[in-house]
């Protein structure tokens, strides 16, 4: 597991039924592109987050396929429709096989 990887997400705590809300996500990760060389001229192997998904109560909101040209600490902003109270699940997949997840509940009043 890569060092110092920590997901952060920003989701409103409340919404009205059917409301469209804005979500921001960021995960601290180097995103080593596989195109840099070390001091001795050897290619530093690629080590990136390659997939990000956001689901709500088992239904998909967005999924993203990432390549080496996504910046360090990958950041996404997108919108989700909230039909009912429930839980957002955010998942990041690392090249090294690790999975990072974060969850956020939202209440529909």
């Amino acid at each position: 597991m890569a060092k110092g990887v920590k997901p952060r997400v920003k989701v409103p705590k409340k919404a009205t039924a059917g409301e469209v809300i804005t979500i921001k996500t960021l995960i601290s990760h180097k995103m080593e592109s596989g195109q840099r060389k070390d001091k001795d001229g050897n290619i530093i192997p690629r080590s990136i987050i390659n997939t990000f998904t956001c689901d709500f109560n088992g239904q998909n909101v967005i999924s993203v396929e990432l390549h080496g040209a996504v910046s360090t600490n990958p950041y996404f902003q997108f919108e989700a429709k909230v039909p009912e109270s429930g839980e957002f699940v955010f998942t990041w997949l690392d090249d090294d096989g690790s999975t990072y997840t974060d969850k956020k509940s939202i209440t529909v009043a």
């Binding site: 110092g4 920590k6 952060r8 921001k24 960021l26 600490n73 950041y75």
Partner: peptide, 12 residues
């Protein structure tokens, strides 16, 4: 603060 990548280090 969410958009500011420096805040990751502040959290750490």
């Amino acid at each position: 603060d969410f958009d500011n990548p420096g805040m990751i280090f502040v959290d750490q």
